[in-house]
Amino acid sequence: MATQLTPKDFATATPSWWCPGCGDFGVLAALKQSCAELSLQPKDVAFISGIGCSGKISGYLHSYAFHGVHGRALPTATAVKLGNKDLTVIVAGGDGDGYAIGAGHFLHAVRRNPDMTYIVMDNQTYGLTKGQSSPTSMLGYLSGTSPAGNPDAPLNGLAVALAAGGTFLARAFSSEPKAMVEMIKEAVRHPGFAIVEVMSPCVTFNKVNTYKWFKENVYHLSDIEGYDPSNRAKAFDVLTQHGKIPLGVFYREIRPTFEALTLKDSPAIAGLDIDRIDPKLAELQEAYA
């Protein structure tokens, strides 16, 4: 029996790179805490990240980590899970990574429902490329590429995911660590594709959506009396209302995972013995004789 690990056991020796005060620190801390509380072992965690300030996070979680190319973390992760379904697969990336360049993959990951957790670190800007507008930037957001104000309506990733068949949708705020840990843990336990969108302020470039702004502009689903996360219509209603930003678990549903539908009961592919040639393979030639 492996010993109970602490968040420290999920730390790497690599110093983190983010600006002091960046919301991403909170995400990393909550992730380590969640891994420890879930009694995961680093060797069994595959952590795949996108490109951006947010994407750097894969260097800081002691695990089998993969830092791929911009926008492609989800297909990579889906295949890691298919390749070895015994792994706990966690994905993290920015709002640009997931909702702009990777938007196509996002929709299809939602449809497929692989058993993994996707943390969208949403700072409503492109941090790494120095503050341009992102798919979640507010209308009128001023930036180097939108000097006259961002003309694109912000994308509501969770509502889109719900429409596309999402089975676990939650939103956390980087400076509410306790709630975030609970959501991440629930997401990892959820047998399906679990999305946790984290409002993770960029203190350097986004001068609108600051910690202070969030504190004034969020509310909690727990404030809604009798909120029931199995009620799809209600979840959609709450997600699409204008005004303050709701936090909490919006929706939960169990449906078969991608692995269950494709691999059925077969063992993890990575563990198959392929060194010996299966003699049955010879029979395939008969169709061509």
Partner: peptide, 23 residues
């Protein structure tokens, strides 16, 4: 297992993911 990907960008990154997992 065989996956019909949503595009070739996904396909190649899936292949990379599976190979990373040891397949």
């Amino acid at each position: 297992v065989v996956v019909q990907a949503e595009d070739e960008l996904a396909a190649i990154n899936m292949v990379i993911g599976a190979a990373f997992a040891g397949v």
